[in-house]
């Protein structure tokens, strides 16, 4: 399968380990990623707060770029990118006034978007297009046995459901299915569908961190050895700001947080260096030791 790869801003810079892991895992799964240096930022939900039409147009351009290359799937690795690209599709399909403004604008720069290219998150592609959890299981070389992993979905991958059309918006299971296929044990905790706090990290850091802390603590109290997320923004809240989050909820937290492709990559036998695990602020050593996996190079 060949897809247009939409890494989003974070995976191209501060969260480069996500990009590294994605490319390595995709290659193992026989998924061909086509890069487009023309892709722009999705607006991250913030452009939408000031101008919806503009936000839709920016993402219609992104989708049109893939469409022009004959690709029907734009693969995202970020819940928010997925949400914004889906929003564009939904608004164009249901709101003729915006559709005509956007179409005219795109025509002006030589694009058309017919709707044939649609966004899909990497997790969704594994589940829906690459044979699902079973197919993945057959490729596992280093089962994550004994590891209790708390899936953390990230809001925009799931909600609103009428836009995202993926899994159950408040009680999803696909990520847990994948975790089981990798040989690990999923953790059942309410925090998995909650918010990480990232959207207000700049507005009111203490609150954002308290929210992140609540979810990490929830995972910890339900026995998680590690968390895993399909969203690099959640990763920032859960990993980069974990110490601050712990301070807000009055607990010393030490919860390794994997990007979704990193977790898959480990089970596929990729080495921690390739997956960029050393780039995390919270060390993943403890979790890896539990697996008897190779130590992370410092």
């Amino acid at each position: 399968m060949k897809v247009a790869y939409y890494p989003g801003c974070v995976a191209q810079e501060s969260g480069k380990e996500l990009d590294m892991a994605t490319r390595a895992v995709a290659s193992r799964l026989g998924l061909e990623l086509v890069d487009f240096p023309t892709f722009s930022c999705c607006g991250s939900g913030f452009v939408d707060e000031s101008n919806l039409t503009l936000n839709v147009a920016i993402n219609a351009r992104n989708l049109a770029i893939a469409e022009r290359a004959g690709l029907s799937t734009v693969m995202t690795v970020c819940s928010t990118c997925q949400g914004m690209l889906k929003l564009a599709g939904q608004v164009l399909a249901t709101t003729p006034t915006i559709r005509s403004r956007v179409d005219a604008t795109l025509r002006g720069i030589g694009y058309t978007y017919s709707g044939s290219a649609t966004p899909k998150h990497f997790l969704q592609i594994i589940v829906e297009d690459l044979g699902g959890a079973e197919a993945l299981r057959s490729k596992v070389r280093r089962p994550l046995r004994g590891l209790k992993v708390a899936a953390f979905y990230g809001c925009h991958l799931l909600r609103p459901h009428d836009r995202m059309q993926f899994d159950d918006p408040e009680d999803p299971h696909t990520f847990e299915d994948v975790i089981r296929a990798l040989g690990a044990e999923p953790v059942d905790y309410r925090g998995r569908v909650m918010c990480c706090g990232f959207p207000i990290q700049f507005v009111k850091p203490a609150t954002a961190e308290r929210i992140a802390g609540a979810q990490i603590l929830d995972a910890q109290q339900h026995g998680a050895d590690a968390m895993a997320t399909p969203c690099p923004l959640c990763h920032i809240s859960l990993d980069t700001y974990q110490r601050e989050a712990g301070r807000q909820v009055g607990h010393q937290l030490n919860m390794p947080v994997f990007h979704f492709p990193q977790l898959v990559g480990l089970a596929l036998g990729l080495d921690p260096g390739t997956l960029g695990l050393a780039r995390h602020l919270v060390s993943t050593q403890g979790a890896l030791a539990k697996l008897g996996a190779v130590a992370v190079p410092a």
């Binding site: 809001c155 925009h156 909600r159 609103p160 459901h161 918006p169 706090g197 959207p199 507005v203």
Partner: peptide
């Protein structure tokens, strides 16, 4: 003030 901007856009309210 901060109240409006504390919404996380998590859409849990939309679903519930």
């Amino acid at each position: 003030n901060q109240s409006l901007w504390l919404c996380l856009r998590c859409n849990l309210c939309v679903e519930s």
